[in-house]
């Protein structure tokens, strides 16, 4: 274990900075960049967001504590997505062995890695844009989209008028469109570009 620590220090002192070198700053950077997106990615397999979250956390913990087994021939991103994918599938195989994989689950396992990754990134961008909405706006959108409440129910719950709910929903969608339009455009361009190749 001690030689391992030494190795870590060596890697860090060389010109190529080890992205998994343990310090709070390094961890913070990698976590902020990939965590939520990885959760959405894992959720594609597990279809259970809470489970996906704890699974991704485990991957992060392992990454920094069992790092001697990690060959850094991958980029940080591809390492993380591969690790999360493998672990998610392992989970489905072992824990849900007895439960027959649902038709949807089977289908999800077949989803090509690239597509799932891109889809997860899109989910994450949308998630970020939801989190950036003004508070009232976000509250209304979340209740409507994720709790499936009707406008009248939301109005009652938040003690506001149905008219306000309508307005807030409109603002939420507009703001999110503005946030996402350029990203989608870039994505579209990339798609065309790779197809030409």
């Amino acid at each position: 274990m001690l030689p391992k620590l030494k190795k870590t220090i060596n890697t860090n002192s060389s010109s190529e900075v080890d992205p998994f070198y343990w310090n709070e700053e390094n961890f913070s950077k990698v976590f902020d960049e990939y965590y939520s997106s990885l959760c959405f990615f894992s959720n594609k397999y597990l279809e259970d967001m809470d489970l996906a979250r704890s699974l991704v956390q485990e991957v992060f913990v392992d990454l920094w504590t069992k790092r001697e087994n990690i060959a850094l021939k991958y980029s940080v991103k591809s390492y993380l997505y591969t690790a999360v994918k493998n672990r998610s599938i392992d989970y489905l195989r072992t824990v849900r062995k007895n439960v027959k994989l649902s038709a949807v689950g089977d289908c999800q396992l077949e989803t090509p890695f690239r597509d799932a990754l891109e889809e997860a990134e899109l989910n994450d961008r949308i998630n970020k844009s939801i989190n950036e909405l003004p508070e009232k706006c976000r509250e209304v959108f979340v209740l409507c989209r994720f709790e499936g409440l009707k406008y009248s129910q939301i109005a009652e719950k938040l003690n506001i008028s149905v008219k306000t709910v309508e307005m807030q929903m409109g603002i939420a969608l507009k703001k999110m469109r503005e946030k996402l339009s350029d990203i989608q455009l870039v994505k579209l361009l990339l798609c065309i570009f790779s197809k030409k190749k």
């Binding site: 899109l122 989910n123 949308i126 998630n127 844009s129 979340v142 994720f146």
Partner: peptide, 14 residues
Amino acid sequence: QSQKIWQHAESWIS
């Protein structure tokens, strides 16, 4: 665009 956002907002992490 709104429809796309609606469909792909499949889950939320605050």
